[in-house]
Computed example of a mutant assay.
Amino acid sequence: MSPRIAVIGGGPGGLAFARVLHRHGLPVTVLERDPSRDARPPGGTLDLHKGMGQLALEKAGLLSAFQELSRPEGQAMRILAPGGAVLRDWQPDPDEQANPEIDRGRLRDLLLGPLEVRWGRTVAEVVPGDPDGTLVRFADGKQETYDLVVGADGAWSRTRAAVSPVVPQYTGVSLIETSLDDVDTRHPDLARLVGDGSVAVYGVNRSVVAQRNSGGHVKVYAQFRAPMDGLTGLDPADTDAVRAHFLALFDGWAAPVLDLFLRGAAYVPRALHTMPVSHTWTHVPGVTLLGDAAHLMPPLGAGANLALLEGAELAEAIAAAPDALDEVVRTFETHMWHRAERWAGFTITGLSRLVSPDPSQALAVFDAVQQEQ
């Protein structure tokens, strides 16, 4: 008989895990707390790295479909000084496929494909060690038992407590997110500023980053260093107050840069958290983690790629040896920890340089990335 496997979380990592298992003919239960696939906006754009996210999609048999949906031109990157001067303007070659962009919603739909997701299943607790397997207890009081539970349930994972007491810690950086719709028609000046990819502006301990998505949609992020309670009392629904707060933080910046944020219609504040660089745990039979649940990092392009690859790799390993589930998971965890530690160190250092007292550090990070590519 096939092992009873559940993955908690319908994000990129959980769906990649389920999709690869499905490709190999193994059943898997996908438990997602959202009540439906369209219950909330899926988020912004992702750049999928050739040796990570794209490799995961290849393992799922979805690479060709991804290439049809992705936007290689989205790799373009322009960096401005706060006063508006252009410091860097990198345009990818027409055949550049190192890190093409794809909207999160399109990636989710691609991964979902034939999968059956149990929507609206909010997990309250995961309890290993039951004689019949690992218990998953739901918020409605029901429970189910599995041979393996994979926690792909993000930063504030309910699965993590089954293997580790560690919780995310604040990085010292907060952000306010907004977006522009139909930008080419309604805001042609800002569309030209953003271009086909992204525009980033770095100042002292703050930055503004705008990323083009498909369909004329642009996501804008204003990042800044602040105490954990720095956004307390700021009502996102009070757009005038949010804009005033932004203008106070970014006083003196060029008007077009400010307009990227000020023309937004809705605002969402967030505090950025991370897990320790070397987060590991003593192996617990019947449960494991992947993606942000295992190694939460700053949003600098690695997290989703790692989650996708980890989900695909774990599924492949299980498909190759379904009767050696515990051994497979032990090996997977060791490999995941080693790779994630390197990326966690890179991204945490990167955030400290991108939102720093010395804006020239951001240019150094950009130049180093271009040399790597």
Rank of each mutant, 00 (worst) to 15 (best):
A255W: 00
D240R: 08
I8D: 05
P322L: 09
H217W: 07
V355K: 07
Q169F: 12
P285E: 10
V209C: 00
G301M: 01
R33V: 06
L306F: 10
G233S: 07
V268C: 11
Q97D: 14
T288N: 10
L135P: 04
Y267C: 06
A76G: 11
G141Y: 02
H187P: 03
P322T: 08
R4A: 10
A315Y: 02
L193Q: 08
V183K: 09
Y170M: 10
L115M: 09
V218W: 03
G172W: 06
G120D: 07
V7H: 10
A302D: 15
P128D: 05
F224M: 06
I348H: 14
V136F: 02
G51Q: 14
S207C: 15
L87W: 14
A265V: 09
V199M: 01
S207Q: 15
A304H: 04
P72W: 11
T274I: 04
D259Y: 01
L290T: 00
R160T: 11
Q211V: 01
R160C: 08
A271Q: 01
H24F: 12
D196A: 14
H335G: 07
I8N: 05
P82I: 13
I8K: 00
V86Q: 15
A320W: 05
A362M: 05
R137Q: 03
S64F: 02
D323H: 08
S356G: 03
V218G: 08
A60V: 02
R104V: 01
L231F: 06
Q361T: 05
P168C: 04
